[in-house]
Amino acid sequence: MSDIRPGFRYTKSHEWVKVEGDTATIGITDHAQEELGDIVYIELPEVGRVLSADDVFGTVESVKAVSELYAPVSGEVVAVNEALSGSEAAINESPYETGWMITVKLKDPAEAGKLLDPDAYRSQIGE
């Protein structure tokens, strides 16, 4: 069974969102890292970039495949996890903590409420 965190929100494309006040931290799920296999490269946006929901905000490359990362919510990028570059294994080892990718200042704090809740995500991945 994949690790799915309570209180987080999820997308069909396997990103997670943790909302705290008017900011949201974003990464990929435990299920996503398991499916991708060992991640070898990540490309993330610059701080200051304004994202709309469903925009591609980066790419992640594993030994199997290159995948695009989709913004679950709209907002401005206020922090990027620079430590991942060169330590991509953190995404595999700790997808919800040290493997976080970006933090955005939410354009609309209600937007994340439309994403999948943990139960809906678990049934989405067939568990």
């Binding site: 991640i39 060169g86 294994a89």
Partner: peptide, 10 residues
């Protein structure tokens, strides 16, 4: 046995 493909790619 298993080659470390991740290290090779990184």
């Amino acid at each position: 046995r298993r080659l470390d493909e991740a290290l090779a790619a990184r």
